[in-house]
């Protein structure tokens, strides 16, 4: 590596271009092979699968877009589709702002800063499934749920939590935020630390209070970062599955079923792989669009 540094850049480019390329390809080769085998081939295969009927995963006959039509007409599709957007909506309301607030609060903290930093990141260390199971115990209705035991101590009647269809999704999103907010807050904290401290100094000298410093310096400076993270968040929430799967199994009455869970149901409950593939393909189209938006945003940020 040191060697290449000493070389004049243009000389290498002219003489050793192909050879250098070759090394690069060689370095990438194992990854490319693995990607081809574990990612691209299955991707293409599932597009193919979505156009056939199948026994298990053995293709039977070509049926065109029939599986797609079946998915669209399936009783659970509409619920799963709209729920997914409700998840996204709630995740923006709850999940998007919490990390920003946490990040600002912690950067403004003078004492115990690292304590708080570790504190908000701590839930992230937990394995996802364990966390979901744990919150399942918290949310149990009746006298045995942890939250209800706490409520009882302060004299409030037990609540039914997740079994109230109106509250199911917000509560699941709250749990996801509890786990995920810490790591996102770290990214914002890094963003805030990157802001030139002289701006704050100048503002303080001009007599700006904490709210004004935030309004005119912090928020504008992390705005671009926020846009990027928002899109990433939407992409992630679009694929939500195990939280509702474990906490509510999509219920009550489909109040929390997500598209991914529907894919899971098609594949692993009904053994209907073509329909699962069809829905996955539909979903990946949406995700490709979202990812395209993400690249556009990040590109314009660099300009």
């Amino acid at each position: 590596m040191a060697e290449t540094k000493h070389n004049p850049a243009n000389k290498t480019r002219r003489t050793g271009f192909k050879k250098r390329d070759l090394t690069g390809w060689f370095i990438m080769l194992p990854t490319i092979l693995l990607f081809a085998f574990f990612v691209w081939e299955p991707l293409i295969e599932s597009i193919r699968l979505s156009l056939y009927t199948a026994k298990g995963i053995r293709l039977q006959e070509f049926v065109g877009l029939q599986n797609y039509a079946k998915v669209l007409k399936h009783p659970d599709f509409l619920a799963a589709f709209s729920n997914t957007f409700v998840y996204i909506l709630w995740s923006i309301i709850i999940g998007f702002f919490v990390p920003i607030v946490l990040a600002i609060l912690i950067t403004e903290t003078t004492f115990f800063k690292s304590f708080f930093r570790v504190g908000i990141y701590f839930p992230n260390v937990m394995p996802g499934l364990a966390m979901v199971l744990m919150w399942g115990f918290f949310f149990r209705p009746g006298n045995t749920g942890v939250l209800n035991i706490i409520l009882e101590k302060i004299g409030i009647a037990p609540q039914i939590w997740l079994t109230n269809p109106k509250w199911t999704i917000p509560l699941i999103v709250a749990v996801m935020t509890w786990k995920g907010a810490g790591s996102t807050a770290f990214i914002y904290m890094a963003g805030i630390t990157n802001i030139n401290p002289e701006l704050y100094e100048a503002a303080t000298i001009d007599g700006a209070g904490i709210l004004e410093r935030m309004r005119y310096i912090t928020i504008p400076n992390i705005f671009a970062l926020g846009k990027t993270l928002l899109i990433l968040q939407i992409i992630a929430v679009f694929q939500i599955i195990y939280e509702p799967l474990v906490m509510t199994n999509g219920g009550p009455n489909n109040a929390s079923i997500s598209i991914m869970q529907l894919v899971y149901n098609y594949a692993f409950r009904d053994f209907n792989y073509p329909m699962a593939a069809a829905l996955s393909v539909m979903m990946s189209i949406v995700l490709i669009i979202l990812s395209g938006m993400y690249f556009k945003f990040t590109a314009s940020k660099e300009d």
Partner: peptide, 13 residues
């Protein structure tokens, strides 16, 4: 050496 290492990588895969 770098070529050899690459080949080794591919081989292990």
């Amino acid at each position: 050496v770098s070529m050899l290492i690459c080949i080794l990588l591919v081989a292990t895969t």
